[in-house]
Design a binder for these strands. Structure first.
Lengths: 193, 193
DNA sequence: ACAATTTGGAACCAATCGGTACAATACACG
DNA sequence: CGTGTATTGTACCGATTGGTTCCAAATTGT
């Protein structure tokens, strides 16, 4: 009936995610995105309406990929001790930096930026962060060391660890010395032990 | 000899700080700044060279005001227990939110933004965060509960608490539920107790 | 009074921003 | 093979970005 789309939508969103991840929402210009996604203005606006809509789709994608990966790690029953899973999450954040990835967490970056004055973006971001939080809580429930805590206390501890996670990933983006990051992760381990 | 400056430079910087604090570096436009500072383009560029230079001055000002206030709280020997001082710092961050201040920490916001791809800004930001970190470490040294730790362990714990602080203030900006913030602070208290 | 300087303000700049209009293009189906 | 149709590329849009330049008015010390 008509000319088919020459690009894969998911792939395009995934490419856009990389651009937003490095530059942030307001820092990523249309040319940046077009370049990274490998398509032209017309195609982008036809397929994704506008920049903000694209960003919301990207956040969804990030939630479905990066956040979901973290959550399933936190739910991985093949590691019986929940605190071990949590430490694996924090350690992997540290290892990303040693591998040269200083971009931090897309969600955490968006959480700090001026884009948070937009209600829709705010909603998606805090939903994503809450998903992380819930994952941490699940892992805590599978931790023998925290079995005697009250549900409320465990809930609060999950909140604290979420803040810890956000702080760690923000520090990574801020080019804080790698030793400091290592120390922070190590101390989380000591605290949970 | 010549006409003196009709505005107070420090006051102007302080006003600029408010604008950057709410909008972030790239989010604050020239009109925003001129409006908030109450002066015109000509005066601003004569006095502060350009936007980035102004922002660096603002960061210095923030370090001399907000960060220094936090540090002197952390050094306040009238509160003998260092952990109490640290908890006061975290609690005050929480109380800022209950008072309706959702702007978070200027340094932490700058740490997450695309402005971190600028070396000069990066340097000033991480210097400020390190100052905070050192303050926390001093407080820890004045804590009986942490007197038996090794210097290295205490250092690492300070790093962790810095990440915690950044995360907390970022969550405040991200409009995370106030209960979650309260829980996070409470858990820090439990952890340090 | 005079020289020095800063003021507010407007005009102006090139560059870039996000977004749109539209003609050329390339495909799927009858 | 055509023809309808959605996609594509590009030229273009007005608005805004940070930054400059000019100038008359204002305010000081000498």
């Amino acid at each position: 009936m008509a000319r088919p789309r020459s690009f894969d939508t998911d792939q395009a969103i995934s490419n856009a995610m990389q651009v937003f991840w490095t530059h942030g929402y307001e820092g990523a210009s249309l040319p940046d995105l077009l370049d990274g996604m490998g398509l032209t203005r017309g195609s982008l606006y036809k397929a994704f309406t506008d920049k903000k809509t694209l960003f919301l789709k990207v956040l969804d994608h990030y939630e479905g990929a990066a956040v979901q990966a973290a959550v399933s790690l936190l739910n991985d029953t093949s590691i019986s001790d929940g605190t071990e899973r949590i430490m694996k999450l924090f350690t992997s954040s540290y290892l990303a930096v040693t591998d040269g990835d200083r971009r931090g967490c897309l969600l955490c970056t968006a959480a700090a930026g001026p884009s948070m004055y937009d209600d829709e973006i705010t909603a998606v971001v805090s939903r994503g962060l809450n998903t992380m939080r819930d994952g941490i809580e699940v892992a805590l429930e599978a931790s023998p060391k925290h079995a005697d805590m009250s549900k409320a206390e465990r809930h609060a501890l999950a909140d604290m660890l979420t803040a810890q996670y956000i702080g760690l990933r923000t520090m990574a983006r801020a080019r804080i010395d790698i030793e400091t990051l290592r120390n922070a992760v190590r101390s989380v381990g000591v605290m949970l032990a």
